[in-house]
Design a protein around this nucleic acid. Structure first.
Lengths: 91, 91
DNA sequence: CTGTATCCTAGATGATACTG
DNA sequence: CAGTATCATCTAGGATACAG
């Protein structure tokens, strides 16, 4: 639970399931996340080797995030969580 | 994520997968949880209709918690999380 | 046994401004 | 564009004592 048990981590991972995304694009997909929490979250996920951060030395800066093999192994769980959430949205 | 996205909720649910448990027994299974957080967690889970709380009018008091049908529907996810955690314990 | 009520602290989070 | 720094706020969580 320490690796993925936060408010934002599962969401970040979920949005990377279909492929790597540029930083700004990924952040926009996570509705409601602040810039600070976004950076903090991806940093921790990178540290835990669940995602891979790639920096392209261009101007303007370009950074891409994608799931690591380890992160990808969470796919069944993330998909299940998503489905369960949709099925139980009535709350 | 609001329904199960806390530090303790998944653990409480997980320990009820194999059947209902008496309050004290359940609490002892959740290592490290304080009395306050335990009560607060089960209260929220009950409110979200993920678990069912049964009070037996005896002395001394006896309270039992068990998964609701809705809570039981989380079993695949909880089992997967458990397995994933075991497989990735090396950090 | 089960649960509540306080008090208290650390960490989580947001808003804003700023840097390379 | 991507990320950092700072300030302020809120809440999670623990410890303890108490109640029914």
């Amino acid at each position: 639970m320490n690796l993925i048990g936060t408010k934002w981590k599962p969401l970040v991972l979920f949005h990377l399931l279909d492929g790597g995304l540029r930083s700004g694009v990924l952040q926009k997909k996570i509705l409601g996340i602040s810039n600070k929490m976004f950076t903090q979250t991806v940093r921790e996920l990178e540290k835990d080797r669940l995602i891979i951060r790639t920096v392209f030395p261009v101007v303007p800066p370009k950074v891409e995030y994608k799931l690591s093999q380890r992160g990808a192994s969470l796919e069944p769980i993330l998909r299940s969580l998503d489905k369960w959430g949709l099925d139980n949205y009535d709350n």
